[in-house]
């Protein structure tokens, strides 16, 4: 798949950056002329992935979250969200709905939401090294926008 545009950024794993991160990616995605629902899906999935970095990956300290987003032909957005945090011991288990290791008021739905709201997600993780979540969404071109 040919990459037609790309942006990357790094931001501190602070909860106040959650809204900034999802706003950046969704603003970038507007080049594909998405519907409001598609934009909302992207915002939600990014919010979940970034929150996971803050709540899980860097739970014992601060670190960077690295976000790369690419526009691919034909009208697909690929979003990579990477951390250098604690990593996930068992990715399959972590992706089960309602599974959470932090308790409190976390619903344990982060990965379920990403899977449901995006077309495809993959998770690569190494304990002690970090996690990369890659998500894809095909955008229904409404008016033939310029990507």
């Amino acid at each position: 798949m040919k990459v037609t545009n790309k942006f990357s950024m790094a931001l501190l794993a602070k909860s106040s950056n959650e809204s900034f991160a999802r706003a950046c990616v969704s603003a970038f995605a507007t080049q594909l002329d998405p519907t409001l629902e598609e934009i909302s899906d992207i915002k939600t999935a990014v919010s979940e992935a970034v929150t996971n970095c803050i709540v899980h990956a860097y739970r014992s300290g601060m670190g960077n979250i690295y976000i790369t987003s690419e526009l691919l032909e034909p009208n697909i957005i690929r979003i990579k969200i990477r951390d250098k945090g604690c990593g996930i011991e068992n990715v399959e288990k972590a992706m089960e709905p309602l599974y959470t290791t932090v308790g409190g008021e976390r619903a344990g739905l982060g990965f379920a939401v990403m899977q449901s709201f995006m077309d495809r997600i993959s998770v690569r993780s190494a304990p002690g090294k970090g996690t990369t979540v890659t998500m894809y969404k095909k955008i229904s071109r409404r008016f033939g926008g310029n990507a």
Binding site: T44, T51, E105, A107, G110
Partner: peptide, 13 residues
């Protein structure tokens, strides 16, 4: 205007 799964945690709690 926006809610992620943190809102679900809020409702469940």
């Amino acid at each position: 205007s926006f809610m992620d799964s943190s809102g679900i945690g809020l409702v469940m709690g």
